[in-house]
Nucleic acid binder design. Structure first.
Lengths: 213, 213
DNA sequence: TTGTTAAGCGGAGGCTCCCTCCGTATCTTC
DNA sequence: GAAGATACGGAGGGAGCCTCCGCTTAACAA
């Protein structure tokens, strides 16, 4: 805030402008061509040199994160809203569906998810944390209400979700994923007595379901 | 038409030898470095020119398929054996678990799965068909026994499975996937009365039963 | 205004990998 | 053997990645 005490210069106008341009170009290019798109194409579209792109976003991941930060936030906020839904299980289901919607709309969104899911690094903690918390709150509420098993972590769910969306470039993927998520959420429900018994016998070797959260 | 005397010459010895060498090298390289590994590295390891590699396996996918054909077959046969299991739902569960095992053992196996799942092309029909049939038989049996919902296609399941395995390079992925599969299979079970009603309109087989709930 | 200076710029260049093409070498057959 | 068919290797052109560094330009001070 106070710029006289600390010796920081005002950031250069061209730098700010270029950063914005790159972001915009990246958004367009990634949404169209997916996360594998050429960074040189992004630079060209932005009308800057490749060096400039790399200075602003040293890695492809940095760029992804910057581009999809808003989307992640939206998704996260939507989870917040769903906290007030009556049926907590259905809330989760709806959140997942809207996630699918995101992926469908913005092809590059998968990149953001991949990032959130795959890299445990500090750098990209943002997306991961936001989404984990979003899911976590939904899961917790459902579990607290006794409507859902409690041995599944938000991370697990996030990964499963991402995994299913990963096939987002095949025909019919969307309805397939929705169907699978439906099944999945059903599986998450707390099972009625009879089945609980059956299941207990049915799965002998499952490594300790460690619950963290 | 004319001279059918001996249409097929004996294949050249060096060609056969080289093909084998490439396969072996590819197996090693893919298992170690994953499906993205450089094909030139494979050629070098095999001690052949890059051209030779490409002649035998025109695409990366062809190579994957050749390398993991055996694994796919094993997986497929295991499904056959499971047909005799008492509990059909548990059979499915066990099959999926063994799939996870495969992925864990052979890093490149994901490539084979990706292939089977992603490319609808005729060329790579082999893995896809084998696995689809394998899953299909398990699903059918369970559905016939009335133990499992019938609106999930083998393709769906295969994709979901692959998706979950896709994160196979993170710490703890294996137990996470096992947990998720467990949930998933639970979701596949035919639900008790109350829910069964909701789902009464479920469609039988493969095509995207666009169920809306 | 003008000068100083650091921040920022661009893109050449070195690298890896992809895949094709074709002159040469080798194997099979007669 | 000789003739042909078949296979071999790797050069080469293309595309991307990323780094590096000389030049440009905006911010600030005088």
């Amino acid at each position: 805030m106070d710029e006289h005490t600390d010796q920081t210069r005002k950031p250069r106008a061209d730098a700010v402008r270029n950063r914005e341009r790159v972001l915009e170009a990246a958004k367009a290019v990634f949404n169209a061509g997916g996360p594998e798109a050429s960074l040189e194409a992004v630079a060209k579209r932005a009308g800057v040199g490749i060096g400039t792109l790399y200075r602003h976003f040293p890695t492809r991941e940095d760029l992804f994160e910057a581009v999809y930060r808003r989307e992640v936030e939206q998704l996260s906020e939507f989870a917040e809203q769903l906290k007030n839904a009556k049926d907590p299980v259905d809330a989760l289901r709806r959140w997942l569906c809207s996630g699918v919607e995101f992926v469908a709309t913005k092809k590059g969104m998968v990149a953001a998810l991949a990032l959130a899911v795959q890299s445990g690094s500090e750098l990209h903690a943002f997306s991961f944390e936001r989404l984990t918390k979003a899911i976590g709150s939904l899961l917790d509420r459902a579990a607290a209400a006794g409507a859902m098993r409690a041995d599944v972590s938000p991370e697990d769910l996030l990964r499963a979700f991402f995994g299913m969306c990963y096939m987002h470039d095949q025909p019919g993927w969307q309805s397939s994923v929705l169907r699978m998520l439906d099944v999945f959420v059903d599986g998450l429900r707390v099972q009625p007595v009879v089945k609980a018994k059956v299941r207990a016998a049915a799965k002998p070797a499952k490594p300790a379901a460690k619950r963290k959260r």
